[in-house]
Design a protein around this nucleic acid. Structure first.
Lengths: 295, 295
DNA sequence: GCATACCGTTGCAAAATTTGCAGCGGTCGA
DNA sequence: TCGACCGCTGCAAATTTTGCAACGGTATGC
């Protein structure tokens, strides 16, 4: 869209922090870029950048404008998608921010299923923690977020929520492997591997242990859920995960046992998007499929 | 907005139903208008008008686009309004890094006063020590810093400085409570509660005691000025604070007596911002109010 | 303290784009 | 059949945008 190129320029300057650097990205001279920014500011009626000795920085007006630019661009993409839809072509791109738990089984499966029907739809999947996921939505860097126990949810519009009990993860040969349910105190007898404190499962476990009056002392703390699962699969260690990140069929060598809710209350897995936003067709269609899969 | 003029043209063609009529409204030739429409359609990837023998009519894709155009235009108007508000100081956000001494009375009062006049201005207040406050300015994490005895002041542009003698803080019933001024050596006879060494007041006291050839031995050392005040309010303890952190009207049960300057030289409380930076209107306005209050 | 490296900005001429003009073929209604 | 109106296009003129070189200012390294 050539008529919106000034927006690209503004974003480029914002990203790189200087006109000269942005000029390279934009394949244009710094002087030309400079004049376009100046012309835009004159037209807009206010400066949008602070001029610093080391470069440019968006001022509050610029921040407001930047949000408008992103909103506007996303909405144009949505229109493009709808237009493609009415000419019969089902193409598009879906950007998803999700918790780590969705990576091994759930999302790959859902994306494959969706693409079987609409092979011209492409995807971007970014692992984000509970705070960053919401920030991605606000910046239009993601269309959908699929997160466990989101942090504040101000700009988060919930499409679907599903309860997820906390599961103990261990090898199939573990002494507790064949239990129907587990008490938290039973787990504390073994080596524990836990996600770091920013993760929802850890927050729930910390709350539970506080109620229990005992401190959980993990032998391994990690930001990788994969590490949690693999460590638990060796020896007598116990890890913790939510059901959506587990697949007993794929791992017959492992056992997953729920912790009773009165010990560790489970959490909610939320699917949502930026509040008030109209999603592109492809994203909306994928969202409804995910809702069905979660129910 | 010259870069959105193609949208006006599209709307004009839609309204009048023909390029030639729309050309008159747009103060442009039909041929030029025609080519712009064609160029837009090529870029957009699909036609947006049906060509009829009697003129032009939006096709379904065009209807979708028209909706986007209108939405987009409204949002831009909203942004314009917000920016106008911004420069009219009616809206905005002020980020302040300050010493602990400003927290109990000074800043709450000043912020309330400011917000009484401009209720749509919001604030962030972060307690920062003398080094971190400056770092916050550099990182644009604060607009203003209000700190006692700043450390290096390289990036710190001073808007105002005000002298602050060191005050002895004690209960109203203390033997020294009714003195006009105090010598430092008088205080040393009592239990002392002092801020930790990173605080400006402590630095001044340590310098003073070094000159005196006696070491100050506090019974309580804390990073909380609140703790200093409250500890001093019980029994015979003496704490130290600067006037801006004290309010004798609010605490009739306490007494605040200045230490003579030749014993403990007072320090300067500085209001400033990042050197060379143009402050947001709201921050600048608030800064001038603070300067007035400090004078 | 001085050289260096960026930074944004500007005058000016060249390059690129947009525009106006005139004219084309086509459809429609009288 | 004719005139009115339509969208469209080749071409030259008008306008806008761009690149180049240079300026003044500030931070950084030696």
């Amino acid at each position: 869209m050539r008529h919106l190129i000034i927006y690209d320029m503004i974003e480029a300057v914002h990203r790189s922090g200087s006109i000269r650097k942005a000029a390279e990205d934009t394949n244009i001279t710094a002087s030309a870029l400079n004049r376009r920014i100046q012309a835009f500011e004159a037209e807009f009626g206010s400066e949008i950048f602070e001029r610093l000795p080391r470069g440019m920085r968006l001022n509050p007006a610029g921040e407001l404008l930047l949000h408008h630019i992103r909103l506007q661009r996303q909405d144009l993409i949505r229109v493009h998608g709808q237009v493609a839809d009415l000419s019969g072509i089902r193409r598009g791109h879906v950007k998803i921010a999700c918790s780590q738990a969705l990576l091994p089984y759930f999302l790959p499966r859902e994306i494959s299923k969706y693409r079987a029907e609409f092979p011209d739809v492409t995807f971007t999947v970014n692992v984000r923690d509970r705070i960053q996921a919401e920030r991605d939505l606000v910046n239009f860097e993601s269309d959908l977020a699929l997160v466990f126990e989101p942090a504040h949810m101000v700009d988060f519009e919930v499409l679907h929520a599903v309860h997820q009990p906390v599961m103990a993860v261990m090898s199939a040969g573990h002494p507790l492997a064949n239990m129907e349910k587990l008490r938290l105190r039973d787990c504390l007898e073994y080596d524990l591997v836990l996600p770091e404190s920013q993760f929802g499962v850890r927050v729930l476990l910390d709350q539970a242990s506080a109620r229990l009056g005992r401190k959980i002392e993990p032998v391994l703390e990690t930001d990788s859920f994969e590490m949690v699962r693999h460590f638990a699969s060796y020896g007598q260690g116990i890890g913790f995960q939510i059901p959506v990140g587990l697949n007993s069929l794929a791992r017959p060598d492992m056992s997953f046992v729920p912790i009773v809710e009165r010990d560790v209350s489970g959490g909610e897995l939320f699917l949502g998007h930026l509040r008030g936003r109209t999603l592109p067709v492809a994203a909306l269609k994928f969202a409804t499929q995910v809702v069905t899969a979660l129910s």
